[in-house]
Design a protein around this nucleic acid. Structure first.
Length: 914
RNA sequence: GGGCCUGUAGCUCAUUCGGUUAGAGCACUCGGUUGAUAACCGAGAGGUGAGUGGUUCGAUUCCACUCAGGCCCA
């Protein structure tokens, strides 16, 4: 008989190499065949609900890495909550309207290929539908759980009708008003452009310095600088910075007011030679002073504004609220009129009779002439700068004030109520609260209208007779009924007529509003269309990236405060953005964009998920291949841990009761209990990186380096049915069962694969492991904390013995230990029988001998063991050679062989896969 | 220019209220093992805690500024 064949080695079909890419595809198919998502819902039918509402990603082709990360993060939350016993019905969503899709479609097909709005909208719809399908496949591939067959789509007619319902409530409660606001305008395309449609190119403008006469001071002028002389007819104010110092510069003829810090450059440019500074005052002292418009019969006043900088110009900024966004904001603060005497072709209207019909850029030189003639022009030159152009026709753009629809942030104290409500929400991390509070405090009224095609129409009417804009709940209700059945295309259909009577003139003929809603109204109405309608209002959790403080979080809160008078979320989890390995933003132009699906194809979803789980997402995330490689190594360790566990449990029958367990095994149950507690706590706080580190460290340090290493002798060479081996297996089984479930939210595929070799059914139908009270054993833990330190010292001594060739393998050693600490000595004597297995040496003796090496706690001497090596278990023992029947075996091994308590034939039983 | 956030070993993270020599794992180098084997065990090396200044007996930790990067706004 070959004793070697009687050793009980690990046996499992669980492969060491994961081959994740293939394996994950198989598992996905199994999940789909078993309809696992609905199985879980059924399983938790009567469980308490956890309402986690999905923020809809934008349906624009392939998912970005940031979206993929967001998906994985949400999935870890969902899977954790399900395993914690909750019912989580996760309805995924997609944001489908908006400029980027419209932009992409026009770019692809050409603007001229669409003869009607609805034709363009059809094309956009197709594009969004395709994108939803692409992304849904990608999200599934990531192994994320959701009701993928019933997502919410913001372009569906039901959803569109719900958005209009939200708007109807806003109107009925009096939040909506109409006012002028400057927008980027292309005079050739005669349309407003969105931020993303601007094409910045170099452009030469006339740069002029103009003086405005102060009414209350003799021969005193405030000097302004502008590169758009054509906006001067719309001038109503002059902004200065309240904190800057302004100099009164006395020249031969007059006194000019100029910012002190800019004086040298201005004086040089204007070639003012003889001057003296009369006095210097703080900007705030000049507020409200009136001046005369340089060529119109009008006055303007000096206002204070923080956006005035000392980088260029004169520190005095000409304000035309109809032609600039900052000017516009200032006009709200100071209640200034918004003049915009420019028509849609970019020509002056009758409001400026002198220039009526003239194109504004052509009018620049007329205005300069007027200024020159009346002596208010101080200096003029050409100025080259980066200037926005139309992305389509390349025409330089202008700011032009047009009527828009707004939501009033002050109505019914909306702003204040939002800020108060923010206090009631749990913000994770905490700084997130400060951020959204600031955003709400500082935001202007919400401009709801967009001059685009691909979106939900604003259901307003214009009287064909008197031009009155009409927005009533009755009209909106009629629109809702139409949209519910037909979708929003019906609004843009020429044949669609809405019955109404003009409240001003009684006319019954109307033109329908062409503008659509800002897309943020779409996605931010999801609390109403989804949470309230299909789940339970309010949601427990919203979870998105940090940029959503200004977008989805904020707008959802505002709308919810308007319609529901309370927040739509109880807690908000924020994560950072994904950057490249140097911390730079990923962008196409930088060439540092990482496609999530390419990474998945190479590494597999579980490794990507493991990598992402290990990062602290509360700040920005630097995505690196190094990190993925590290995660791969960590994954292998976790996987091998499972392989070892499975391999040694193939013949496991049933658990021993706690009292019968060996001391080391009891210790490991204590450690397992601590692990379960810590991991559960980390999950509860959504600190997945802590989960990752806890589990990984447990696999490496507690299991691989300590427990498994010391266990090999017991598992392989002790009697197959011995208490000692069963004791080890009992703990291995508990460890496997707990570890697989703890790791399941992060590694859904691998945990499922492991479970298939261990138990029946899907692991995702299980609950998280629960600590059994008897496992906790602080006394034992404290004893072994000391023994662990001792072990480190012995390992160090063994390494030294190995270096000077006293021993090779640790089992060749006899270790003699001694200590001056009596308490420690008594502990060691107490545990002496266990020490050889803990140190993995053949013999441990407590004694004092010559030439001991002194460590912190112990004096140690390592000798080559004098006994012969047991052929079966490789331990050196004094009885080896004394047994006639088995002369090459130790006492323990001869007993095992004699009793036949070992694996006699290798059964080739394939474990059942899950 | 403003609000918010980040900076500890090559990588991912620790370091409780400020207090001994800033710790783990991975990667790296060397050694052991060949019964977890494209695995396993041990040892070693690796840090001016982004920088400067301040408070303090003492600062990675608290404060100010600077630098680098991110988001939002201007």
């Amino acid at each position: 008989m070959l004793y070697k064949d009687t050793v009980i080695l690990p046996r499992t079909a669980f492969p060491m190499r994961a081959n994740l890419v293939q394996k994950e595809a198989d598992i996905l198919k199994n999940w789909a065949d078993a309809d696992l998502y609905n199985l879980i819902q059924k399983n938790r039918a009567n469980a308490p609900e956890y309402i986690f509402h999905d923020g809809p990603p934008y349906a624009n082709e392939h998912a970005h890495l940031g979206t993929a990360f967001n998906r994985v993060l949400k999935d870890m939350v969902i899977r954790y909550k399900i395993m914690a016993g909750y019912k989580v019905h996760f309805i995924p969503g997609w944001d489908c309207h908006g400029m980027p899709i419209e932009h992409a479609v026009i770019k692809k097909k050409g603007a001229k290929s669409f003869s009607s709005k609805n034709q363009l909208r059809q094309e956009c719809k197709k594009y969004a539908e395709e994108s939803v399908d692409i992304q849904r496949q990608e999200f599934k591939r990531l192994g994320t759980f959701a009701d993928w067959d019933h997502p919410y789509i913001t372009m569906s007619k039901e959803y569109e009708a719900k958005v209009l319902e939200v708007f109807k409530i806003m109107v009925s409660k009096g939040y909506i008003y109409r006012a002028k606001r400057p927008v980027h305008w292309c005079m050739k395309c005669r349309t407003a452009l969105a931020e993303a449609e601007l094409d910045y190119k170099d452009f030469t403008s006339p740069s002029v310095y103009v003086k405005f006469k102060i009414l209350s001071m003799p021969e005193t002028y405030i000097l302004i600088w502008t590169t758009t002389p054509w906006t001067l007819p719309a001038n109503v104010a002059c902004a200065i910075n309240s904190g800057f110092k302004y100099a009164f510069v006395k020249t031969e003829k007059e006194t000019l007011i100029i910012a002190d810090s800019l004086l040298p450059t201005v004086v040089e440019k204007l070639k003012i030679k003889d001057y003296k500074i009369e006095k210097t005052v703080l900007g705030k002292e000049l507020g409200n002073i009136e001046y005369k418009h340089p060529f119109l019969d009008r006055t303007g006043k000096i206002i204070l504004s923080s956006f005035v900088t000392s980088e260029s110009g004169t520190g005095c900024v000409h304000i035309a609220p109809g032609h600039g966004y900052e000017d516009y904001l200032a006009s709200i603060t100071y209640n200034l009129p918004i003049l915009s005497p420019v028509d849609e072709k970019g020509c002056f209207t009758e409001e400026v009779p002198e220039l009526q019909g003239k194109n504004i850029f052509d009018a620049d030189k007329d205005i300069i002439e007027i200024l020159t003639n009346n002596g208010t022009l101080m200096y003029k030159e050409d100025f080259q700068h980066s200037y926005p152009h139309c992305w389509r026709c390349k025409t330089p753009l202008i700011f032009r004030a047009t009527p828009q629809w707004f939501l009033n942030m002050e109505h019914n104290n909306l702003r204040t109520r939002c800020v108060e409500e923010i206090e009631k929400v749990k913000w994770m991390p905490e700084w997130s609260k400060k951020r959204i509070t600031n955003n709400i405090m500082q935001r202007p009224d919400w401009c709801l209208s967009r001059q685009r095609s691909w979106g939900i129409p604003i259901p307003a009417l214009y009287c064909k007779a008197c031009g009155e804009a009409i927005l009533t709940t009755e009209i909106i209700e009629k629109a809702i009924q139409l949209v519910k059945v037909n979708g929003t295309d019906i609004w843009f259909d020429e044949n669609t007529k809405i019955d109404a009577v003009c409240p001003k003139c009684g006319n019954k003929e109307f033109k329908k509003e062409e503008d659509i809603f800002d897309v943020w109204i779409d996605s931010s109405s999801s609390y109403y269309a989804v949470v309230k309608e299909k789940l339970k209002f309010p949601a427990n959790l919203y979870c998105e990236a940090v940029d959503q403080h200004r977008c989805w979080f904020q707008h959802s809160l505002i709308l919810s405060m308007v319609t529901e008078e309370q927040s739509c979320f109880k807690s908000v989890l924020t994560h950072g953005l994904i950057l490249d390995k140097e911390g730079k933003k990923m962008s196409k132009s930088q060439g540092n964009v990482v496609q999530p699906m390419e990474v998945i194809k190479k590494y597999g979803a579980d490794i990507v998920r493991l990598y992402l789980s290990g990062l602290d997402y509360t700040c920005d995330i630097m995505f690196s291949t190094d990190g993925l490689e590290t995660a791969t190594t960590a994954y292998r360790k976790i996987r091998n841990t499972f392989k070892f566990l499975l391999g040694n449990l193939y013949d496991y029958k049933k658990a021993l009761s706690y009292e019968k367990l060996w001391e080391v095994d009891k210790l490991m149950l204590h450690k397992l209990a601590v692990l379960i507690e810590n991991v559960t706590k980390a999950y509860e706080e959504f600190e997945f990186y802590k989960v990752y580190h806890l589990i990984h460290n447990y696999c490496v340090m507690e299991l691989s380096q300590f427990y498994f290493d010391t266990l090999k002798d017991r598992l392989y060479t002790h009697g197959k049915s011995s208490i000692s081996r069963q004791s080890a297996q009992t703990v291995l089984s508990e460890t496997l069962s707990a570890l697989a479930r703890l790791v399941a939210p992060i590694l859904p595929f691998t945990s499922e694969e492991v479970w298939g070799y261990f138990n029946s059914g899907s692991i995702h139908l299980e609950k998280l492991p629960v600590v059994q009270e008897e496992w906790k054993n602080e006394k034992l833990a404290n004893e072994y904390a000391v023994i662990s330190e001792i072990r480190d010292e012995v390992l160090l001594a063994l390494e030294q013995a190995r270096a000077n060739k006293t021993i090779g393998s640790g089992l060749e050693a006899t270790v003699i230990i001694d200590s001056k600490d009596e308490k420690l000595l008594s502990l060691l004597r107490d545990k002496i029988a266990l020490l050889p297995s803990i140190f993995i040496v053949s013999e441990v003796i407590v004694d004092r001998v010559e030439n001991m090496v002194t460590f912190k706690k112990l004096d140690i001497k390592v000798n080559l063991c004098e006994y012969s090596k047991c052929e079966r278990c490789w331990i050196r023992e004094k009885e080896v050679g004394k047994n006639n029947e088995h002369p090459t075996l130790c006492v323990k091994c001869s007993k095992v062989i004699k009793e036949g308590d070992y694996e006699k034939e290798i059964e080739k039983k394939e474990p059942v896969e899950g």
